[in-house]
């Protein structure tokens, strides 16, 4: 499914956090390409810079230097307004803690990206309900997040990340808050509904159980990409990286 067209191109990305007492180099010259139709996983120990990298790729954090092109557009060349617009139209998010709005129903939560993109609320909720049906939650469209299990909430979050048909979906630990079986269901769902030839997926994870679902896995350590492995070599990769979990 992977095409040669690049969804994300990172070159010499550098990001440093200044905590007052010390400077922490979160990204130290990252080079990474992600292709359309690809499911890329970012793995590595805590604090290695995975979250910083997807934040920069998703355009919610500015790098200090280097280049990060998403669909040929460099985030740093966009004005704040255009950055918001580009993000609203092209990026979908799935979070570890689901981050659903607690006072909205499942359908309303899913409808949020559409409303942000200017769709009328009623139409957006109707489209959201259709997508909830696709992720197997048609009967829970009117439920509040607090009335849903963790797995169901993550399915709502996946529906929310897809509803506006974004070209890049960024997932942060989508299965780590779920039990084994639910985690597998969620990643299978994500792979079946989100992976498409006109879309790329980046998943940050510690969860070795889902590595098999990746097209490629980039291993990070100390703000650098250590290596990028295609799935063919992945079983071997998992074994040597038990400490990753």
């Amino acid at each position: 499914m992977t095409s040669s067209e690049l969804a994300v191109k990172c070159r010499q990305l550098v990001k440093t956090y200044d905590t007052g007492d010390q400077k922490i180099a979160a990204l130290q010259g990252i080079d990474l390409d992600i292709h359309m139709g690809e499911l890329m996983m970012l793995v590595g120990p805590s604090g290695c810079g995975k979250t910083t990298l997807i934040s920069v790729i998703a355009g919610i954090l500015d790098q200090d230097s280097g280049q990060c092109d998403v669909f040929g557009v460099d985030w740093l060349h966009l004005s704040s307004k255009n950055k918001l617009l580009f993000r609203a139209q092209n990026i979908g998010f799935v979070f570890q803690a689901y981050n659903l709005l607690p006072t909205l129903t499942a359908a309303e939560n899913v409808a949020v990206p559409l409303i942000i993109n200017g769709m009328k609320r009623q139409l957006a909720v109707r489209k959201a309900a259709e997508l909830l049906e696709k992720v197997g939650l048609a009967e829970r469209a009117e439920s509040l997040p607090s009335q849903l299990s963790g797995g169901q909430q993550q399915r709502v979050a996946i529906a929310r990340s897809l509803v506006h048909n974004p070209r890049l979906i960024v997932c942060d630990e989508p299965t780590s808050a779920l039990d084994h079986q639910t985690g597998i269901h969620v990643i299978e769902l994500l792979k079946s509904v989100a992976v498409a030839s006109d879309r790329a997926l980046i998943i940050v994870t510690h969860d070795a159980r889902i590595f098999d679902y990746a097209d490629r896995i980039a291993r990070m350590d100390d703000g650098r990409i250590e290596n990028v492995n295609a799935m063919a070599r992945h079983s071997e990769f998992t074994k040597e990286d038990d400490n990753v979990t």
Binding site: R87, Q89, N99, I116
Partner: peptide, 13 residues
């Protein structure tokens, strides 16, 4: 705050 962050990340001005 996290919910506001989510909305901001998703493109809310």
């Amino acid at each position: 705050l996290r919910q506001f962050g989510v909305l901001k990340a998703m493109g809310t001005s």
